[in-house]
Design a protein around this nucleic acid. Sequence first.
DNA 1: GCAAAAGTGTTATCGCTACACCCATGC
DNA 2: GCATGGGTGTAGCGATAACACTTTTGC
Lengths: 234, 234
Amino acid sequence: MTLRDGAPVRLAVSTVIFALRPDHAGHPVLWTPLVRRTREPQRGLWALPGGWLPPNEALEAAAARTLRSTTGLAPNYLEQLYTFGEVDRSPDERVVSVVYWALVQSDEAAQATVGPNVRWVPADTMPELAFDHNRIVEYALWRLRTKVEYAELAHAFLGATFTLAELREVYEIVLQRRLDPANFRRTMLASGRLLETGERASGAPHRPPKIYRYETTTAAAQTREPFMRERPAS
Amino acid sequence: MTLRDGAPVRLAVSTVIFALRPDHAGHPVLWTPLVRRTREPQRGLWALPGGWLPPNEALEAAAARTLRSTTGLAPNYLEQLYTFGEVDRSPDERVVSVVYWALVQSDEAAQATVGPNVRWVPADTMPELAFDHNRIVEYALWRLRTKVEYAELAHAFLGATFTLAELREVYEIVLQRRLDPANFRRTMLASGRLLETGERASGAPHRPPKIYRYETTTAAAQTREPFMRERPAS
DNA sequence: GCAAAAGTGTTATCGCTACACCCATGC
DNA sequence: GCATGGGTGTAGCGATAACACTTTTGC
C-alpha cells in the first residue's frame, strides 16, 4: 500500500454486538447486527457498526453511541476487545480500529431497529465482511465463549429477572453444549450472586420456577478486572 | 480541556516492560524501565517508553521497536494490554495510547542500556509517572499476575534452558507466594510443554537438577489466543 | 392420572494441597 | 558423615459430573 506523505493515522471505533434471537427453526442463537457501507472503500459490503473517533468523545462512549444508533438499545455489557492496527487493513488509508464487544438484552433486541442498511445475522454464519471484520467477529466470539464462565456475562442477555432455566439456556447457547440442570442450579446458587424475588413464573404445565434477580448492589464485581474505578456496565 | 477545532486525535504506542532483577537485598523482583520526558507536557517526569505511531508501522512492531531502543533487548513475550482513550489523559492534546506489555530475559536485562534518561525501577514501588501511566502499570501488573498461570509467561523471563527450581522461582516472584516444589514439578511436567535436555546442573551441594527446555515446535500455543486459526479452547 | 420441568440427594471421580520421605551431590 | 535441595509417594479435601429420585403444576 502507498501512503501519502504526512497522512495521519486515522482512529476508528467499532463494536461487535451480540444478542440471542431465534434462528429459522425457532432455536435461539447468537446474532450480530451489521451495517452496509454506503461509501468507498468497500462500498456495499456489510461491516461492523462504528465510525471515526470524535476528538471529544471517550473510546467507550463512542462504542456505546454507535451501538445505540445501530440497534436503538443500551448495552448491558460493554468491554474493549482489542485494537487492530496492521498497516494494510484498509486500502488507501492507515486506519487503526479500537474494537469493543457488547451484549444486549434479547427480548429488546427482537424489536431493534432495522432498515435497508442494518441487518442482523447469526454470528456463526457471517457473510463476507469489509476489511478484516470477519476476523474480528471470530475473535469476539472466542472471547465471549471463554469468558462466559465469569457469570455476569450470561445475565447481560437477560432482563432484570429470570428463571434458572432461562439462565441455563443462555449458557447452553453460548457454550454450545448441554448442561446438567441440577448441577447448574447448585453452581449458580453457590456463587451467591442470585437473589430470589419471591415470585414464581406460572402458566407452564409443570411446577412453577422461582424468579431470580441478579446481585448488583454489593461487592459483586470481584471477577472483573480491577481498573481502579468504575466499569462500563455489568 | 480545550481542543483546537479540527485537531486530530493522536495515536501513541507505549510498552510496559518487565524483567526480573535483584533488589537491594539481592532477592529478585519485577523491574520496569522508564524514560524521562524531555519535552512538554510533563517534561522531566518519568514515563513508559513509547512514541507516536508511524504511519507505516504496525502496532506491535512499534512496541517492539520502542522496547529495543529503551532496553537494547528483544522481547520474549509481547502482547497488547489495553487501549487508553479518555478525553483528558493529556493536557492540550487528545491522545489515545495503545499499550503493550512485554517480558524480557532476566540475565540479559541485567546488562541493559541505561543512561540519564532511562532508569529501571521495581514495579511495585513506582514513582509518580506522567499522565495516567501509574494506572497503566498497575493494570499491567494485574494482568501479569493473573495470566502467569498460562505458563509460557514464566518461561519468557528465563533463557532457553532452565531447571524446575528456576522456573518455580519465577512463579513465586510474580505471584508473591511460595509454591510447593513437589506439586509444582508435577503440574509443570503434566503440562507436557517441558522437554528434558538430558543435561544436569552441577556445582551445588545437593543433587544436580535436570535442565529443561521449553516446547516451542509443535502445537504448543494452545493457551494463547486464537486469532482465527485453530481452536478456541481452554 | 399423566407429562414435564422444578428442585433435592447421593455417589464417583478428578485435581489440587499438604506433607512425609528417599536420593544425590559438595564439603 | 552432614546439610541441602532434587525428586517421589500418598492421603485428604473440595469441586464437579452423573444420575436417581421427589415435587408441583396444567391439562
